[in-house]
Design a protein around this nucleic acid. Structure first.
Lengths: 342, 342
DNA sequence: TCGCTCAGTGTAAGCGCTTACATATAAAAT
DNA sequence: ATTTTATATGTAAGCGCTTACACTGAGCGA
């Protein structure tokens, strides 16, 4: 009896077209290995039945999913949006599908998501940053699932990476800030625990300070999760300290926008009364007024290259080639000379 | 010979623990149907081997994936982010995984994504808006995959929906605008083709105008995709027309932010020279200055309720219960009285 | 003591595909 | 005409799980 009520299967199509299931499968996967007339007949059967191949069955038989998994810390703000969009476009062009999950910056959640994606048969993985439980790397090795890191470049890391040096970028930004004449510098950093981007950005700051003979220990720094509200709150706290900073460096644009908002609410003029800088150069950085001085990250290029590389790792079973991309300081209105020097 | 190189399978675990595969499967899925001692032995084998069940195999055998698919028009901006986050949290709490794709507002892409998600075994689907090719509904019926619509409420639609009346919300906003004394009203709408939210928001505007005896035909309206740049460009065009509007209503906050940015760049003061309103009340609306007058949508509530409902549809095989949520006008600084009346 | 019940476990049949291999047929080479 | 070779299709063996059903033996009442 033909399969009528449920979704049609390969078998149904084969019967309808009067061929074997192998031929139908070939029509779908390697059409040039089937003669025109047969293929036509099969395709008509496929259309009339409204057949869609069952993904799970296909995966089981072929051991390939043409799926790449990506786990990003957050989807709530746009930090990873543009890069991921480019990543997905490039994957699509190469016949792969992207599966995205977010970990909310929580290592345990990330671990679970990795297992989930691997269990779902991801052929390869994109992860953000290098800092995670080594157990995860062993797991990936064992499962033979290649993984690539983005948003952070590190040559000696366990996994290959397509990214940039967060440390150098921050250092360059701080040097610009110092060149503007600032001496009372404060920072609103993201949570550094388990986040090498945040760690490196902080390190870049101390690098620059040390190089210029500043006292790094006197640095006023607040660590807080990457959310606008937190940026605002941290800014308020910094401005109420005894030595008000003349510039507040933020761990990313989201924190910076929060700080900026708070400055305006407190009646402070930016940059006349206080300068604020960000990091990432997301769309938001250009929308706020004054626009944010920030570090431009080549999001789209990074996403596209990461897609190429992860596909290469999957298809060629290669170890993966790391690449360091260039960032660029974007000087915009939120950074000016310190108040005293005006 | 035991399976050594590749990922361990149920069989490997069964052998290691000295039980049958059925017992191992039961330990994982219905632990209380296995006696303590056996379960312990099996779990140890699972841990030492680092076993993770193969998802595809599980799906094939069980015909359930505990996966819900969602297709949203875009991930590039935050319009759907908060609602989707809540949706996913609620799903997670109920033991389901969320798979997200974006269609870039393109009906053909959405169609393809729906097929992909169904092929991947999504137990249920979340779609945005009601306006799509009826063929899709037939396909979903045939595949017996329940689907729910969000971000738009329509009682007589083909699919149940958890949303709000875009029309009523816009109408309410326009009435406030008129109450402020505005008479020269213009609109920057999103692309209405295939987007019932955009259509309904426009309809809400004409509703209000007609009710107040305005000439709807004289309305100056520009239709453009939902992107900041486009909002800016459209605003420029509107302000260079012979009858400059005193207020520009935007199809969503993204367009409104673009318009606002452009106004500032043109040296116009908002709202002294021109008022601007948005729709959605995304985070951005409160960040820009002046903050946007907009329609607040209960994103999180909508996401959470949609999750509950779609799970109910999957598990109870029910038809699904629609619900209309309340929106609220948020009056913020971007709306003021028209220039002449100041 | 003897069934009887029932909890705990094993056996094995698929789920819907892909693909190695076998087979059939036609074209080319001898 | 016969053999060789290439091409098109069919046959059937899994892929790693779940679960209906069969089996076993302990505990129970009669």
């Amino acid at each position: 009896m033909p399969n009528t009520s449920a979704a049609p299967t390969l078998d149904d199509v084969a019967k309808k077209a009067g061929v074997s299931t192998a031929t139908v499968s070939r029509c779908l996967n390697t059409p040039d290995r089937v003669v025109e007339a047969t293929r036509k007949r099969v395709m008509i059967a496929v259309d009339t039945l409204g057949y869609t191949p069952n993904f799970a069955a296909r995966v089981m038989a072929a051991k390939r999913t043409f799926t790449i998994g990506a786990i990003i810390p957050t989807m709530e703000n746009a930090i990873f949006a543009r890069g991921l969009q480019a990543f997905q476009e490039e994957l699509h062009a190469r016949g792969y599908t992207l599966l995205v999950s977010s970990s909310a910056y929580k290592p345990e959640v990330e671990k679970e998501q990795i297992r989930t994606l691997v269990a779902r048969g991801a052929d390869g993985l994109l992860l953000i940053g290098h800092d995670r439980d080594p157990e995860i790397y062993e797991y990936l090795d064992r499962q033979k699932v290649p993984a690539l890191v983005a948003w952070s470049y590190q040559s000696d890391a366990r996994l290959p990476s397509i990214g940039f040096s967060n440390r150098d970028a921050m250092r360059a930004l701080v040097e610009k800030v110092i060149a503007h004449g600032h001496e009372r510098i404060a920072m609103i950093s993201g949570v550094r625990q388990g986040n090498d981007r945040a760690q490196q950005r902080f390190a870049g700051l101390t690098d620059a300070l040390t190089a210029r003979g500043f006292d790094g220990d006197a640095l006023n720094i607040i660590e807080t999760p990457y959310e606008i509200e937190n940026g605002a709150e941290a800014f308020k706290k910094l401005m109420s300290s005894s030595t008000k900073p003349s510039v507040v460096l933020c761990g990313n644009d989201v924190l910076a926008v929060g700080a900026l908002r708070q400055a305006i609410d407190m009646g402070l003029r930016v940059p006349q009364d206080v300068s604020i800088t960000g990091f990432d150069d997301i769309e938001l950085a250009r929308i706020v007024s004054p626009a944010l001085t920030t570090v431009h990250v080549p999001h789209r290029e990074m996403g596209r290259k990461a897609a190429c590389e992860v596909v290469a790792m999957v298809e060629k079973e290669s170890a993966g080639q790391s690449e360091s991309l260039q960032t660029e300081i974007k000087l915009r209105a939120s950074l000016g000379p310190p108040p005293a020097k005006r």
